[in-house]
């Protein structure tokens, strides 16, 4: 599966309060409405920039640290984020992303700049930086996670198989 979009780059230690502030999580379960606030503490224009054509959220170390709120990957998905590329991820965010169907890629994001045109090949385990003409390899996901992502997340997996089929 190949996905092509623009890179939107941010720093290290982006916590779940930055991705979607706790104050919104009680307002509603409507992710479309909440997505407008995605990343707003760091970049109030994130939604505006990413929503129309989609984009990759590129970050440094420990992306998604903090709370277990699944609204974090969900608002990113609803803001049209195609995948998150980071040097490392916080554990719960990583799980939640897989379970909600948001591809997460652990790779050397120092090689990518904001605005680069990227192509992500999940099966081959490579990010192609079209702007720079470079390739960044990464370790493909373990089979259990790849299956869940391929099924479109845990809900779809359950619907399809009537329970765990891992």
């Amino acid at each position: 599966m190949e996905i092509r979009a623009t890179a939107f780059k941010y720093g290290d230690d982006i916590n779940t309060d930055y991705i979607i502030s706790g104050k919104y999580k009680f307002k509603s379960t409507d992710m479309e409405a909440m997505a407008v606030h995605a990343m707003e503490e760091l970049d109030p224009r994130y939604y505006e920039k990413v929503k129309p054509n989609g984009g990759f959220l590129v970050a440094g170390r420990n992306f998604g640290m903090g709370s277990s709120r699944e609204q974090a990957p969900l608002v990113l998905i609803h803001a049209n984020t195609k995948a998150v590329l980071a040097k490392s991820f916080a554990r719960i965010f990583f799980r939640n992303a897989i379970n909600t169907g948001l591809p997460v890629v652990e790779c050397d994001t120092d090689l990518v700049d904001d605005g680069d045109d990227l192509e992500l090949d999940l099966t081959a385990g490579v990010v192609r930086d079209i702007t720079k003409g470079t390739e960044i390899p990464f370790a493909p996901l373990p089979p259990v996670m790849a299956t869940l992502l391929a099924d479109g997340g845990l809900v779809e997996h359950f619907r399809k198989h009537g329970g765990f089929a891992l």
Partner: peptide, 30 residues
């Protein structure tokens, strides 16, 4: 538990960990 501080009960020798809502739903179901 669908809350990141579910790790609290490690203090009483329980392997407890925080998960997201979809994980929580799967665990409640299965």
């Amino acid at each position: 538990g669908c809350d990141s501080h579910t790790c609290t009960y490690g203090a009483v020798n329980v392997f407890s960990t925080g998960v997201g809502s979809t994980d929580g739903a799967a665990a409640m179901a299965a």
